[in-house]
Structure formats: C-alpha cells, structure tokens
Simulated assay, not measured.
Amino acid sequence: MEPATGRPFYCFILGADASGHESIIPMTDERNWDDLPDELVSKVAELLLRSDVTDYIHLRDIKPWRGAAPKLVGMNPRFFPRHWKMLQIQGEEARFVNVLTGASMRLKIPRHYGQVLACAEGCLLFAAPSGRGAHKLRLCNPVTRAVADLPNLMTRVISQDFKAAGIIYDVDDGEAPTPTVVLLVAVSVWSIDMVLYARPGDAVWQWQFFAPNEDGELPLFQGKGSLSLGGNFYVPTRSGDVLKLELHPQPHFVYAATQQEVTNQASHLHLNLRSYLVPSVDAGMLLVVRRFEHIAGYIAVSNVVFEVNLAEGTLTLLQDHKDIGNRSIFLWWLTLGTH
C-alpha cells in the first residue's frame, strides 16, 4: 500500500560497488512511488500475481502503479491470472474465484470492448460488432487491464459455431513469450471442426480443418469442455480421453491422457456422453464425464470424475467424494469439493 504521509518509504535495489560485487542499497524517501524504477514495478507485479492478486488490486489505487504496471507486463503470460476462473457476470462486474486458494473477488469488466466470448488462462476474450458481418476481437487481462487486438472474425462463427477458446505459449524460452489465441469452431455446413489461431497484432487468422476420418466418423471433440492450462490447450473427447493441441509444424491433436482401463463408460455410446475439463486446486485438472441414459421415460444423468496426470498421460477414476477430497470442480451445473 502507499506509505502514510510523513513516514519514510524504504526500498532496496540491487547495485554494484567499484569491485563489481553486487550489493543491496537502501534508499529512503517520503511517498516516492513516482521514483520507482520500471524494473522494480515489474518485479513487484510478478510476485503479486504468482498465486493471488488481492494486493495487486489494492495497488491499482496508486497512480504511478496504475500507469506503469499494465504497460510493463503487457500481454506477457507470466502475468496472466491463470489460477482465477470467472464464474458469473452481474452488471458491470464479474466474480472470479481462485482455484488454488478458494479466494474470490469482483472485477469491473470493460463492457465497451463488447461481450465476453470466453475466458482462458484468466484472460477474457471480447467480441464487438465492427460492421460488414464481422466482429472485432480483443484479449484482455482483467487484473492488469492490458489489452491486445486480434483479427476480426465473421459474426456467424461467433453466434452459431463457436465452441471454445484457449491460449498457447512457450513457458521458458528466455524471452517474454507471445500468447497465441486458439479458437475451436464447429463448421456445421460441412460437419467438421476447425481450429483458428492468431497472435495479438496479426492481420488474419490462420486455420486448420479436422475432417472425418476414413471410417466416416467425426472427430469426437467435446469442445465446450476445453481448458487452457500452463500454456497448453486441452480438449476432451466424448468418450473420455484428453487431447492436446500442438501448432507446429501444423495444427494437430495428440493424446495427453487416456484411460488405462476400460471403465465400461460404453464408448460406443459416445453420443450419450459429455466430457468437461475443469481446473483443480492442485494446479492440475480433472475430467468430468457425464452420461445420459433413458430409463422408463426419464433421462438419468450420472457423473464420473477422473484425475488427470499429464506427466504420465493417465486418467485415474475417483470413486467418490472422499477421493475427490479438497479438489474443486467449477461448472455452472456442478460444484464438488471444499477447501
């Protein structure tokens, strides 16, 4: 917080003496936030955004911070509020919950950017009409208020065929990574799926079609249950496996996690299954498979939950709420787990 009036503000910055050794130089001044070097503001921002953003929000009341921090962090994925999931929008504000700590907060949504099309890695994808049957898309970090422009997109894609959005980026490449926004779209006219992808500032979207295989069956994507996590974009299949999208050398899906044992989920009845990936409090994710059955004129719904182990590429069935433990599932129709 901003130091109280009349009290010195102590700041330590790294320096070097005549022999080249690093030293810590104490600097004192009264209310000298205006004099903070950009590097220090950026470092403070990084520390505050690691797991929680409460203090970061509080610091936005300080004018120098409000002007410097968003400019410095930009759309760098290191500063995405990736552990925060948006649950609902009420008026001009949206409620976010931290899947690691259970903390919640409300943030003002910049409605002048349009409607919220999707939320990925804690960032919001906005779409606003731009004329000639197209929408202007923007990516916004709701915490830092950083905004990036994306290529326009046809209105029909947004209103009818849009399934999900994700963000892909390199985690450790030595430089600030540039996020790639990914859209998963169902092309209903041809009964195929399409992946569109672009980086902030690009003029057009690149795309890749995923057509039916040789047997005439459609790819079994359950796009609305997709999830961005740690710089990757994951898509569940209706039969209960997890795919990861890779963009190079060209967009393609690979299996990220599969069921080691058949759980009699009746994979041949995949049209009666719906799969959803959800963030978990252990910084990982869970797979929820919903099964719909017609019994005596009624539709019975059952939920099966799997723990996703990306390192080993496996899915472990969680038998009951005891196995779920303190993990949490956030879907509009289901909330499991406490912490």
Rank of each mutant, 00 (worst) to 15 (best):
Y276N: 14
L124M: 15
E293A: 01
W332Q: 15
L227E: 06
Q260I: 00
G223S: 12
L271G: 06
E217S: 14
T28W: 12
L277C: 14
V289P: 02
G240I: 08
V235H: 02
W333G: 11
L317D: 04
L183V: 14
Q222T: 14
A45N: 05
C140L: 15
P110G: 05
V41H: 04
I62N: 00
E307G: 15
T178N: 11
C11E: 00
P37V: 10
Y234M: 07
A18K: 06
F292M: 05
F330D: 08
P249N: 08
A94H: 09
A186H: 05
S51K: 14
V204G: 03
L331P: 08
P251W: 05
L218A: 10
I13V: 06
K224Y: 10
R145C: 11
V301M: 02
P251M: 04
L336T: 06
L117W: 01
E175Y: 12
Y56G: 06
V41I: 03
G231H: 09
K85A: 06
D38M: 10
S267I: 08
Q208K: 15
D34F: 11
A256I: 00
W333E: 14
L269G: 03
I324P: 01
C119P: 00
T335Y: 06
A266E: 02
I57Y: 05
T335E: 13
D52L: 02
V189G: 08
P26L: 01
R31Q: 07
E92A: 07
A94E: 09
G337E: 08
